Amino acid sequence: MTNSRNIYDYLPQRVPFLFVDDIEQLTDESVITVFKFPKDWDVFYGHFPRYPIVPGTILTEAMAQAATILALHVHSQRGKLGMLVKISDAVFRNQVGPNDSIRVTGALRQQVTPFYTISVALETNNIKAATAELTIYVGDVNV
């Protein structure tokens, strides 16, 4: 659905800290993003080198990036900055490893502008790997 130009309209992150390859779906109520972790990603050489897995903090960041896209999309908030301010009920159920693709789905649960609470789920190989409820703050960029 989306190319990198559209992703960059929503997110300030860039490679190597961008965890969205594509936005498959985006409405005022939900988002679906996808990303593939390359086999030769540097993190795998240091995060359990004999059994490389994606750190939970990175999975959380991938979910936060999807949630930020949704928060900024609501009421056309492009040009503002979305920041993760709260993580609730995070659960990591399965591991994500080299060459795995992830699919993050997010659903808007509550909006009290400038705060957006979004329920997110991350899947790999059609198996739920992580879930959380994230709160994103949307504000002006003052940098």
Rank of each mutant, 00 (worst) to 15 (best):
L18Y: 13
L18V: 14
L18A: 13
V20H: 07
V20L: 05
V20S: 03
V20T: 15
V20N: 02
V20D: 09
D21C: 07
D22K: 13
D22F: 12
I23R: 06
E24F: 05
Q25E: 11
Q25D: 07
Q25F: 00
L26E: 09
T27R: 05
D28M: 09
D28Q: 13
E29W: 01
S30C: 07
S30L: 05
V31F: 00
T33Q: 04
T33S: 02
V34D: 00
V34K: 11
V34Q: 12
F35N: 12
F35A: 11
F35K: 09
K36S: 12
K36H: 09
K36L: 07
F37V: 02
F37G: 03
P38A: 12
P38I: 03
P38H: 13
K39A: 14
K39I: 12
D42A: 15
V43C: 11
V43K: 04
V43W: 06
V43E: 12
F44Q: 15
Y45F: 11
Y45C: 15
Y45S: 15
Y45A: 15
G46A: 04
G46E: 11
G46H: 10
H47T: 01
H47R: 05
H47E: 05
F48C: 09
P49I: 09
P49H: 11
Y51M: 10
Y51T: 10
Y51K: 13
Y51W: 14
I53H: 10
I53K: 08
V54H: 08
V54D: 01
P55F: 13
P55G: 14
G56N: 10
G56Y: 05
G56R: 14
L59Q: 13
L59R: 04
E61L: 02
E61M: 06
E61K: 00
E61R: 01
A62P: 09
A62Y: 09
A62T: 11
A64Q: 03
A64H: 00
Q65H: 02
Q65V: 02
Q65K: 07
Q65L: 06
A66E: 04
A66L: 07
A66K: 08
A66Y: 06
A66Q: 08
A67E: 03
A67P: 01
I69C: 07
I69L: 06
L70M: 06
L70P: 07
L72Q: 12
L72G: 03
H73N: 15
H73M: 10
V74E: 01
S76G: 13
Q77E: 04
Q77T: 00
R78H: 09
G79H: 12
G79K: 11
K80E: 02
K80Y: 02
L81F: 06
G82S: 05
G82Y: 07
L84K: 01
V85F: 03
V85Q: 00
K86T: 11
K86G: 04
S88P: 00
S88I: 08
S88M: 15
D89F: 03
D89P: 03
D89A: 04
A90W: 00
F92H: 08
R93G: 08
N94T: 01
N94R: 10
N94M: 05
Q95V: 11
V96C: 15
V96Y: 03
V96N: 13
V96A: 14
G97D: 12
G97I: 10
P98S: 09
P98L: 03
S101T: 11
S101P: 15
I102P: 01
I102E: 07
I102K: 05
I102F: 02
I102T: 05
I102A: 08
T105L: 00
T105Y: 00
T105V: 00
T105P: 05
T105C: 01
G106K: 05
G106V: 00
L108F: 04
